[in-house]
Write a protein that binds this DNA or RNA. Structure first.
Length: 104
DNA sequence: CATATGACGATAT
DNA sequence: AATATCGCCATAT
């Protein structure tokens, strides 16, 4: 395959994340070949629109929570995850040990 | 080419 | 545990 942009690689990984599971930015970065590019990973997803084919809502930070983002998108993400069977606690974070994507 | 930015992560305090 | 700071990477300008 021709070398894709970092963004494209990130999207490809996120698209493989199955429903009911989540993955951290750092893990996605690791999967695309740049384990320290967690920041760039967030930047890549930030460039996406909420109506994209990429399930960006399954990507959370290492706390299992939703990172700071524009508008009420955080609530949208939480609702989408809850709709897939993921439960949040009062602190607004989920159990990463329980929902973290095993990779396959 | 240099500087600034950001949906992060880890460490220090 | 919460906050502050630094480090890292990929784009934008």
């Amino acid at each position: 395959m021709a070398p894709q942009s970092f963004y494209e690689r990130v999207y490809a990984v996120v698209r493989e994340v199955p429903p009911g599971t989540v993955v951290t930015y750092g893990e996605v970065a690791r999967r695309v070949g740049s384990p320290l590019a967690s920041r760039a990973t967030g930047y890549a997803l930030h460039a996406l629109a909420w109506d994209t084919e990429v399930p960006w809502w399954r990507v959370v930070n290492r706390e299992g929570g939703i990172s700071d983002r524009p508008g009420d998108g955080a609530l949208v993400q939480r609702q989408r995850l809850e709709a897939e069977g993921i439960a949040f606690d009062d602190a607004g974070h989920l159990n990463l040990r329980r929902y973290f994507w095993g990779g396959d």
